[in-house]
């Protein structure tokens, strides 16, 4: 084996090891039970999704967006909320984070229902807006509490 070939294979093996190590680290982090930081991030997502829902509703009422845009964006938002809800429901949590996980699951369920109402046009704007605001406030409080 020439020097050049040996160097090439050493580089290839190093690259594969680095990529493998990163991949394993990411996979392991996905599989471990949720800790407070993970739940804080999910609460942050729920806070942002609730704010998007509220904003979409307002801009739709103000005729600033098209009907097609509104319907599609609400559908995409609903998928995002469902993914977060599923992650929270299907993952286990570390013992000290279990109560927070349950609270986040409850918030995600409320948000999912609110987004469904927004999609189907159920409920009047005021009460739905209040629901989004309440979810946003609770998610923010949770995020702040878990940041400490």
């Amino acid at each position: 084996m020439t020097e050049r070939t040996r160097t090439f294979w050493i580089e290839v093996v190093l690259l594969v090891l680095i990529v493998g190590a990163i991949g394993t680290a990411i996979a392991l982090s996905e599989m471990r039970p949720l800790n407070k930081d993970d739940i804080k991030m999910n609460a942050g997502d729920l806070r942002s999704f609730a704010a998007v829902g509220r904003r979409l509703m307002e801009q739709h009422d103000g005729q600033q967006v098209t009907e097609q845009f509104f319907a599609a964006e609400v559908e995409l938002l609903s998928e995002k909320v469902s993914t977060t809800k599923q992650t929270l429901e299907e993952s286990s949590a570390q013992p000290d984070a279990e109560n927070d996980r349950r609270e986040a699951v409850e918030l995600s369920t409320h948000l999912r229902n609110a987004v469904d109402d927004l999609a189907s046009g159920r409920g009047d704007g005021n009460s739905l807006g209040q629901v989004f605001d309440a979810i946003q406030t609770r998610s923010k409080q949770m995020e702040d509490r878990l940041s400490r």
Binding site: G44, D45, R47, S48, A51, V52, R55, L56, Q59, Q63, Q64, V65, T66, F69, A72, E73, L76, L77, K80, Q136, K140
Partner: peptide, 25 residues
């Protein structure tokens, strides 16, 4: 608004707010 856009459509809400449907399109 404490929104962190994760979708291109969400980002488009800003020009829609400023210029209405034309801004959005």
């Amino acid at each position: 608004l404490v929104i962190e856009p994760q979708l291109p459509g969400t980002a488009a809400l800003a020009p829609a707010f400023a210029f209405g449907k034309y801004g959005l399109i």
